[in-house]
Simulated assay, not measured.
Amino acid sequence: MDVKDFYFDLPEELIAQDPLEDRSSSRLLVLDKETGEVSHRIFKDIVSYLRKGDCLVINDTKVIPARLFGEKEGTQAKIEVLLLKRRENDIWEVLVKPGKKAKPGTVILFGGGILKGTVVDVVEEGNRLIQFSYKGIFEEILDQLGQMPLPPYITHQLKDKNRYQTVYAKHDGSAAAPTAGLHFTEELLRQIEEKGVTIAHVTLHVGLGTFRPVKVENVLDHHMHSEFYIVEEDEAKKINDAKAAGGRVICVGTTSCRTLESATGEDGILKAGNGWTDIFIYPGYRFRILDGLITNFHLPESTLVMLVSALAGREHVLAAYEEAIRERYRFFSFGDAMFIASHPEQET
């Protein structure tokens, strides 16, 4: 399977640089995964595509302001640090720019010394382990000094940190937002529950690997990044009960999808627990529990386009993307959305 099979030509001006004023007013392309038929709606219309008895699965991870700008102690050389994952206590795996200035033993000062970081090791892919020292509460200091780690294709400054956060974000740990969830408002979620749809929460802390390009020609040679997930017992029961009763399991975002597919056995039963997943979903994959997906429009040749293609078929997905481009949909994190399911009829 060649990575070029997932290429499409995307005009740069269709990359959304800013979030819309109203989260739920994004456009929604509805794709029938069986026939490839598409229709065009507004995101708040998603309520009419969900049915009583369905289970909507959301990822309640919270993005931390993980981008820090500091100075090398002694030389005042500028250094940028991006927190990737907490290893233990105050030791974090980070991305450092420029890396050559961050040899083991290097001390970096942030906020004039409010936060101090010491490089303790170099690990795989050139990432660093940094031991932080400070007075007070780390999360409060990070909130004061850190910036949201927006994807590289967004060049505008974000005016409001909360717009790169879902309204249901709860558990700190992500370096990137589960962006399909950015379209939901409290009001929309209330309408969905009033319709008789169960909303289940899972947690997957999104890493920057989600933006990492596929650099191999053969898709099967790609090494997938790992991310930490949690499925609580009562949330797993909601999902399993809905499925057993004939409802559909609709995942909000590829992160919720990857969590469920990682934690579901061959028997189709979702198991509670936590762990690291590096599941790579591409055409040929047989979904164990997911029936439908709400997702944004993704990068050409990305693992996310491959996941969507596994669900709806590569030809259907690329044809839908071509139509979205013709219709001037907005792409990527702050862009518009898709709903993918079998025979996704609206209910009145």
Rank of each mutant, 00 (worst) to 15 (best):
K33R: 15
Q131F: 03
Y321R: 07
K116C: 06
G196D: 11
P151L: 02
I289M: 06
R248Y: 03
L307P: 07
V197H: 09
D90G: 00
G284E: 10
D160P: 02
E301Q: 14
E227I: 13
D2C: 00
G53Q: 05
E345Q: 14
Y282I: 12
L82T: 04
T61A: 05
G196V: 13
V47T: 15
L56G: 09
L189V: 03
G111D: 10
P19T: 05
N274H: 15
V305E: 01
D22M: 11
D2E: 15
L50A: 09
L82Q: 02
A242M: 07
L290R: 00
D18A: 05
K52I: 03
D18G: 00
F69V: 11
D221R: 11
M338E: 09
L150M: 12
F211E: 07
Q17R: 01
I79A: 05
G313R: 02
S39H: 07
I269E: 11
K85P: 02
C55K: 01
H225W: 13
R27Y: 09
I279A: 09
K103T: 12
E37D: 14
L109N: 14
I279G: 09
K159Q: 13
S333E: 01
I289T: 01
P152N: 06
V119E: 08
K52L: 04
F184K: 01
R128T: 10
G105L: 08
G105F: 10
C251Y: 00
G209A: 09
L29R: 03
D234Q: 13
S174M: 05
G273I: 13
E93R: 13
I79E: 02
K243A: 04
K85A: 13
E88S: 15
E139Q: 14
P283H: 10
G36R: 03
V167D: 07
S309A: 06
L83S: 02
T198H: 08
D336N: 05
F297G: 04
S302Y: 11
A180H: 01
I114E: 15
V317M: 04
R212Y: 08
P300Y: 12
Q144S: 14
K170I: 00
T35R: 07
R41D: 12
L84A: 09
E13L: 00
K101Q: 10
F331S: 01
